[in-house]
Design a protein around this nucleic acid. Sequence first.
DNA 1: CGGCAGTTTGATGTTACTCAATTTAAGTGG
DNA 2: CCACTTAAATTGAGTAACATCAAACTGCCG
Lengths: 239, 239
Amino acid sequence: MEKMGNHWPCITCPIRNNRFCRSLLGASSQSDLTPRPRWQEFHRFPAGTTIISQDGSSDRIYVLCDGWAFRHLKLGTGRRQILNFLLSGDLFTSISVFYDKMHFSADALSDVRVSTFQRAAVMARLSNDSHLLSAARQICVDETLYAERLLSTLGQGTAEQRIAFLFLRIAEQLSRDNVITNHRYYFPLRLEHIADAVGLTTVHVSRVISSLRKRKVIDISQTHLTFLDPAMVERLASL
Amino acid sequence: MEKMGNHWPCITCPIRNNRFCRSLLGASSQSDLTPRPRWQEFHRFPAGTTIISQDGSSDRIYVLCDGWAFRHLKLGTGRRQILNFLLSGDLFTSISVFYDKMHFSADALSDVRVSTFQRAAVMARLSNDSHLLSAARQICVDETLYAERLLSTLGQGTAEQRIAFLFLRIAEQLSRDNVITNHRYYFPLRLEHIADAVGLTTVHVSRVISSLRKRKVIDISQTHLTFLDPAMVERLASL
DNA sequence: CGGCAGTTTGATGTTACTCAATTTAAGTGG
DNA sequence: CCACTTAAATTGAGTAACATCAAACTGCCG
C-alpha cells in the first residue's frame, strides 16, 4: 500500500457522488482545493493486491475513489465467496462506520485509489450532523435490501438468473456515475470473479454466457459488456 | 390479528432477553408490573398466519415475544426464500428501526405473541440513549455478519453443509435462552421450511437428513432435533 | 516466434430436481 | 379402541443442472 500526501490531486476523485462522503466532507464546499481534513487519508493499491485482509481490525473507514475492487469471504477449503463489487464512491461496508472488526477481505481488481477516514472522527460527526446520520442509515438499508435479494437469487435462481442478476447489479452501480452508453459497460471481471460471486464454476459460467451470447441477450468482448436485450436481462434477474 | 390490552399478563414475555428491548423499556425496572408505555402494543397471531406482508409499510417496529416465526421474500414464480427464523426476543429486522417499508413477509410458524413499538417514539429515544443506540448498532452488525455467512454457505456449500449451517444457527439462537438439554432442541420446522431456507427441495432435504441420521450425526423425531455428533455438525456448517 | 493467462469445448461424473407412489403420523368421529 | 381422513415424510426411478477433468484454442506480450 502506498500512502499519499494531502496534496494528492483529487480533482477527479468521485467520492462526492456518495451522499455519505459529501456530508462528511462538507456539503457546501464542492471545490477540490479545500485542504483535506487530518482524519482523511488517501492510498493507492495496484491491481491484484489486497486492500483489507480478513479477520484483522482497523480504526478507519474505507471508501473507494477510483477503479474496481471486491469484497469477499475466504472459506476453509480455499474457496471464496465474493460478497459484492466496489466501484468509485462506494463505502466498503456500512457496518465499518461503527464496527472495527474486518470480517472480510477486499482485493483491488484494477489499480485503485482509496480514501480512508478515522472512525472516531466520523462517529463524532455522526452525532451532530443529521444529514450524515441519515446518509449512513440509507447505505445500511440499501446494503441489507441488496443482500437479501442476492440471497434469494443464490437460493432460488438458476445459473442464468444468477449471472443476469450480477450483471444488472453492476450496470445499476455504474449508472450512478452516468458511464452508460447504449447499454454498454466497461467490465473488467474475469470468469473467476463471476463464478465466485454467484456460486458456480468458471467452466459453467463460460457456457451460460456463450448461450446468452448466441441468443443475443448480452455480449462480452474486449473488457466491455453489452446488454443486447436489456428487457430480457431484467426478466432473468428478477426471477 | 388480535390486539390485546395493556394489562396482558407479560410475566413470561422474554423480550427483555434482547438488549435493545431492555434498553428501550428501561434497564432498571425488571418488574413486569410496570405499566406498558403508550407506544408499545401486544398482538397475538395463530400458527400459519401472516404477521407482515411484503411491500407494505408500517410505522411500527416488531419484536417476537413468544413462539416461532420466519421472515421470507416471495418471488415471482410462487417460490420463496426464507431469510431467517425468529425466536423469542428477536427484532424482526434491524432496518425497521429507521425504515418504514416492509420489503419482506413474516409468517407465524406456531401461535405467537408479538410486541410492536412506534418507530417515532423509538427513534426519539435513540438520540438520547447511548445504550439503546449501541444495542441497535450491535443488532445491525450481527445481522450483516450472519447474512454474509449465509450467503457464502448458499453460494459455496453442499446440501449437507447448508442444512448443518441452518441447524447450528437455530441451535445458537435457542441457546441464548438456555433451552438446551443434551444438544436436544425443540424444532417445529417442516421439511418445506428447511428447503425454502437453504434453497433445496423437500425431497432432497429428506434424503440428506436421513443420511445424517444413519451416520448418527443428528436425529429428528417428534418435533425435537438432537445433535448426536455436535462436532461433526460444526465441521459441516463451517465449510 | 514462443509462452503464458484466460477462455472455450468435449466427455464424463455427481448432485440435486421432478414426478409419482408408498409409508408414517396425527387427528377425528363413531 | 378402531376405522377413516388428511398432512407430512420417505422412497424409487428417471432427468436436468452443474461440476470435474483434460485438452484445445485465443489473445497478448516478451
